[in-house]
Write a protein that binds this DNA or RNA. Structure first.
Lengths: 207, 207
DNA sequence: GACTAAATACCAACCAGTCGGTATGTTCAT
DNA sequence: ATGAACATACCGACTGGTTGGTATTTAGTC
């Protein structure tokens, strides 16, 4: 019921607002009031749902990760039969969503961990978990592609998956420095070339 | 005279302190008093030398860049005759200095721009300039290596140099998330493999 | 009426920046 | 060389606004 004005619940709206504002301003510079204003609530509501600003940050990291996993799970590339195709299509997908305003395509986890790694261990851990979990998913396809096309390679699938995340994080940093997404897409295209170079495909299937 | 107790002047000491503290805590979370305490001065001295906290950040970005250029200029790899050797030795040097506590090897520019790109244009610009200038230096050797070993490659020297910086920035982010330098060095070793793959060396010189 | 959700009002701590003051030169005319 | 005038370097108390967090109250719902 009340289908027309249905909105996510307050907690979710606060988390969404936090995601946006923190990616634009950073964690420390973002005040609780900033988040409340963006979400359309007051402080009372905020501290009803979160016991502290740090608590919100940890929840926001999980929220962001969940949102990202939903996004990637819905992407069409999972249907591809060849695991290497899936890996490359993942890269292409990452490149394709690097567009528009920086806060919308940059990574909340990378943004927060950069500031908070030393002073807020709980936030550091939440960001690490998010990145590690996502990388593990990518590593699955890489592992399968490796078994097919580069079984004897010296690098591990997980290490390559983490490298992929590092390139993306670095690409976001450069995009912020240069105030635009182009440089980030250029970085991803280098990453794609690297991955292609790691998996020498047979010219054709007969063999 | 008074050579035994000679210290850098107050401005330099404040900039050094800012470099350390901001890399550990981030820009927003660092207070002017934090920097003064670290440098052994009071607020009066601080605002005598810098007109605002933002002004200090801009100066610190330039200071950090200058320090970095000194460090790299002193590195031995510049003497290598082959430009590709110089590029690879640069990468190895970058890897070698990724050690010890994170604030000591991470990049002030990447840390600050991540937080401040949208809210402090002057800081964003200072960080961009630092990164761009350093990348341009690396691009020189890449350009020469390209002329020798990959003259027809599709990528530009500058684009590869910027990619190199992106990988390093991303490596720092992952090091922060994982609380240690190992992952960052692993990333750099992927980067090295990529660069090697871009410059197919002749087996030997006779040709 | 018991419970949850959210608003309002408030507080103590904190922070960037100011200001008046001291100490130590430096310049230069006498 | 001396002392008036000025400049530079630094100190530390203070301020006005902000911030994370709390206490209390109100509205709605099972």
């Amino acid at each position: 019921m009340n289908a027309t004005t249905t909105q996510p619940d307050a907690r979710t709206r606060l988390l969404d607002a936090a995601m946006q504002v923190i990616r634009a301003q950073g964690y420390s510079a973002t005040t609780v009031d900033d988040i409340c204003r963006e979400a359309g609530f007051t402080k009372g509501a905020f501290f009803h749902h979160f016991k502290s600003k740090e608590d919100l940050a940890v929840a926001a990291a999980a929220h962001f990760s969940a949102m990202a996993e939903t996004l990637f799970a819905a992407a069409p590339y999972h249907a591809l039969p060849d695991p290497l195709d899936r890996v490359l299509a993942y890269i292409d997908f990452r490149s394709a969503i690097i567009d528009g305003p920086i806060p919308q395509f940059s990574c909340l986890l990378g943004t927060m961990v950069q500031e908070a790694y030393d002073t807020h261990p709980a936030i550091r851990k939440a960001c690490d978990t998010g990145i590690r979990t996502h990388a593990a998913g990518v590593a699955n396809d890489i592992e399968a592609a490796k078994a097919l096309y580069a079984p004897d390679a010296a690098w591990s699938a997980l290490s390559l998956a983490l490298y992929t995340q590092a390139v993306l994080q670095g690409a976001f940093v450069l995009a912020k420095a240069k105030s635009g997404p182009e440089i980030a897409r250029e970085c991803v295209s280098h990453l794609r070339r690297y991955i292609e170079s790691l998996f020498p495909r047979p010219i054709n299937k007969e063999d």
